[in-house]
Amino acid sequence: LNLKQAKEEAIKELVDAGIAEKYIKLIANAKTVEGVWTLKDEILTFTV
């Protein structure tokens, strides 16, 4: 999975969960695949 694909998957998951745009922007700015997954997990843990 490359960075672009990771971001697309994570953003789709966050949108489906009804997460606010400000958190989705954090994913869009992530620099690594690991960073994308870590941010996604943290956002889902603390906002859902």
Rank of each mutant, 00 (worst) to 15 (best):
Y23K: 02
E21I: 10
K31T: 14
E13R: 05
L1V: 11
A17E: 04
E8G: 05
E34H: 07
D16Q: 14
K40G: 01
E34A: 07
T47C: 14
G35K: 11
V36G: 00
A17N: 07
G18T: 02
E13K: 06
A6V: 08
V48C: 14
V15A: 08
K4W: 11
L26F: 06
I11N: 02
L3W: 02
Q5Y: 08
L39W: 04
A30W: 02
A28D: 11
V33Q: 03
V15T: 13
A17Q: 07
T47W: 15
Q5T: 08
D41F: 12
L26M: 11
Q5C: 07
A6M: 04
E9M: 15
W37Y: 10
K40L: 15
L44I: 07
D16N: 14
L44H: 03
A10H: 00
N29L: 13
L26K: 05
W37Q: 11
L14R: 00
K12C: 06
L39A: 04
W37A: 08
T38G: 08
E8M: 12
E34V: 07
T38R: 15
V48R: 12
Y23H: 04
T38Y: 13
A20T: 07
E8D: 09
K25F: 09
T47R: 11
V15E: 09
K31D: 11
A20D: 13
I24N: 02
L44K: 05
Y23G: 01
L1M: 13
A20L: 08
I11T: 06
T47P: 07
L1N: 10
K4R: 12
T38S: 12
E8L: 12
E8A: 13
K31W: 07
K25C: 10
N2H: 12
E13I: 14
E42P: 00
V33T: 05
T32A: 02
E13F: 10
G35P: 00
E34Q: 09
T32Y: 03
D16M: 15
A10W: 02
V33M: 06
A28K: 11
L39T: 05
K31N: 09
E42C: 15
A30L: 06
K12E: 03
A20W: 05
L14Y: 01
A17L: 13
T38A: 15
L39H: 02
E13Y: 09
D41E: 12
E9R: 14
E13M: 14
V36E: 00
T47D: 07
A17W: 09
K40C: 07
W37H: 08
I19C: 09
L3N: 01
V33G: 01
L1K: 11
I27E: 00
Y23T: 02
E34L: 09
I43C: 03
L14W: 01
L1S: 10
V15W: 08
N2T: 15
T47H: 15
T47N: 12
T38H: 14
I11W: 05
A6W: 04
G35F: 07
G35R: 14
A6R: 02
K7I: 12
E21M: 13
K31H: 08
A30S: 05
N2Y: 11
L26Y: 06
T38D: 07
V48F: 12
E8Q: 10
Q5H: 09
Y23N: 02
I43M: 05
L39E: 01
Q5V: 08
A6F: 04
T38W: 14
G18R: 05
K31I: 11
I19Y: 07
T32G: 02
D41H: 13
T32Q: 02
G18E: 03
L1I: 11
I43Q: 00
K40E: 02
Y23D: 02
K22H: 13
K12P: 00
G18Y: 03
L44D: 02
N2S: 14
V48H: 14
D16Y: 11
E42G: 05
L3V: 05
Q5P: 01
K7G: 01
E34T: 07
A20N: 09
I43L: 11
E9V: 14
I43D: 00
V15C: 11
G18C: 06
L14D: 00
Y23V: 03
I27L: 07
A28H: 15
A10E: 01
T45Y: 12
T45V: 07
T38K: 15
K22F: 12
K31M: 12
A28W: 15
I43Y: 05
I27R: 00
A20G: 10
A28F: 13
G35L: 13
E42I: 15
D16R: 14
G35S: 13
A10D: 00
E9P: 00
V36F: 02
K25R: 13
I11H: 03
L1R: 10
K12Y: 04
V36Y: 01
I19P: 00
E8I: 11
F46L: 13
V48M: 14
E8R: 11
L39Q: 04
L44G: 02
K4M: 10
K12N: 06
G18D: 04
I43V: 05
L14K: 00
K40Y: 13
K22C: 13
T47E: 08
E42Q: 14
L26H: 04
T38F: 14
I27S: 00
G35H: 14
W37I: 08
E13N: 06
T32I: 01
K40H: 08
K12T: 05
V33E: 04
E21A: 11
V36W: 01
V15L: 14
K25M: 13
L14T: 01
A10F: 02
E21D: 10
K4A: 13
T47G: 14
E9F: 13
V15D: 04
W37K: 12
K25I: 13
E21V: 09
V15N: 08
A17S: 06
L39I: 10
I19L: 07
V15H: 10
N2Q: 13
E21L: 12
E42W: 15
K40D: 01
V48Y: 08
Y23F: 12
I43W: 03
I11R: 06
F46N: 12
L1C: 10
G18L: 04
I43S: 01
I24C: 06
A28C: 15
E42S: 10
G18V: 02
Y23C: 08
A10M: 03
E9G: 06
I27P: 00
G35T: 10
V36T: 03
I19V: 15
K12M: 06
G35M: 15
W37C: 06
A17P: 01
N2R: 14
L39G: 01
K31V: 12
L44E: 03
E34K: 09
A20P: 15
V48Q: 13
D41W: 14
Q5D: 06
K7D: 00
E8P: 01
L26P: 02
K22W: 11
K40I: 09
T32P: 00
I43E: 01
K25S: 10
F46A: 09
Q5W: 09
T45F: 11
I19E: 01
I19F: 07
I24H: 07
K4L: 11
T45D: 07
E34D: 08
L44P: 01
K31R: 09
